Amino acid sequence: MLKENLSLSQLFAIIIGFNLGTTLVVVLGITAKEDAWITVLLSTFTGLIIASFFLNLNELAPSKNLFEIIEFGFNRFFAIPITLVYSLYFFYLAARTIRDFGELTSAFILPLTPIEIIIIALMFIIGYILYLGIEILGRTTEIFTPYSALFLFLLIILLFASQNISITKIQPVLARGILPVIEAMFPIEVSRPYGEMIVMTCIFPHISNLKMRKKSVLFSVAFSGILLTIATLIITASLGITTASRATFPLLSTTRLISIGNFLERIDALAVFIIMLGIVIKSSIFIYSGLKGLEYIFNYQYRYFVIPIVCIIAMFSIFISMDINDHVREGAVVVPYLLYYPLQFAFPCFLLFVLLIKKVKNKGHSPSKDKPYKNP
């Protein structure tokens, strides 16, 4: 089986699309009120630390993905059940991501179309991309991500031109101090999207340029964090924190404020493109990583599992919640404490500790290169 490779530019585009993903669907740091954008900005610095952690975890076994690293740290007997848990976790997050797009499309774009049709159509695209391979996803992302960033900046310019942005809506700054901002970061803002980047440990082995990989990852995390900060700042400065917190999809609500000369208006398509591209990238990465877990468990190429898994995820994303309120409540209350903390932070920290212990032991057992020469 030929190894699939990704370029640094493709990795850069994938991480940006992944981090934007469903993150733009909701207002980030909403509990910090007018300081929501500060919460997102500080979360970016935390995200850089988290990304560095996952990179260091991967660098202890550069050619291995997450599941192979688990086997390297323990053994295959223990790695198989842990791999199964992570695969199900990735599939679950993919189903939630796809449901986000289904709710958005059925509410704003195609209100007369059943959500089942929307989800099945999206899953058909994702399944086709995954069957072709990770390289195709990388090329697709590399082509369309620049348009996503361009459209986001275009929306900002149009909002300024239509005089919908008011700085007074984000004032006073830090009126309640820094503590509410710090509290708003945990657990949601740090876990999503930066904690979810544990899935990238299944992507890092596809990068052949190991020297520049770390710089590319950290730069892409910083750039995506800046984009999220700007988007949060613009949303709150346009809608106001009260309206933004009540809006189901605040980015689309912000876009609908644009009206220049009663001619240029209703440009929701730009916002939908940004969100849809991010959702396709994010859900594809989740599903691909879960498929690699099944490949590790059953020793069959992951393409054998694409069609059945895509069908199961499509069905599960439809039945995952009753409505949008139930879907949002589950993501805010249940998911962080049951899934984010144990699988994103607790176990990876334990795994890194085990790998470092093994590394020290291997060094201790290696023969010394500086043995003094003894005459016979």
Rank of each mutant, 00 (worst) to 15 (best):
F186D: 03
P187F: 14
E189H: 07
V190A: 11
S191P: 05
I198V: 09
V199Q: 02
T201R: 03
C202D: 13
I203A: 05
I203P: 08
F204Q: 01
F204W: 00
K211Y: 14
M212R: 11
S216G: 11
S216R: 11
V217M: 04
L218W: 00
L218C: 01
S220N: 10
F223L: 10
F223I: 13
G225W: 07
I226M: 13
I226W: 15
L227W: 15
L228P: 01
L228G: 04
L228R: 02
I234R: 00
I235Q: 08
T236K: 07
A237G: 15
L239Q: 03
L239V: 04
A247P: 09
P250I: 00
P250E: 05
P250D: 03
L251T: 09
L251I: 14
L252C: 07
S253G: 12
S253I: 08
I258Y: 08
I258T: 01
F263Q: 01
I267D: 02
D268K: 08
D268S: 09
D268Y: 12
A269G: 11
A271I: 05
F273P: 07
F273S: 11
I274M: 10
I275N: 03
I275P: 08
M276A: 13
L277H: 12
V280W: 12
S283A: 12
S284E: 02
I285Y: 08
Y288K: 05
S289C: 06
G290A: 12
K292V: 02
E295R: 00
Q301K: 10
Y304I: 06
V306I: 10
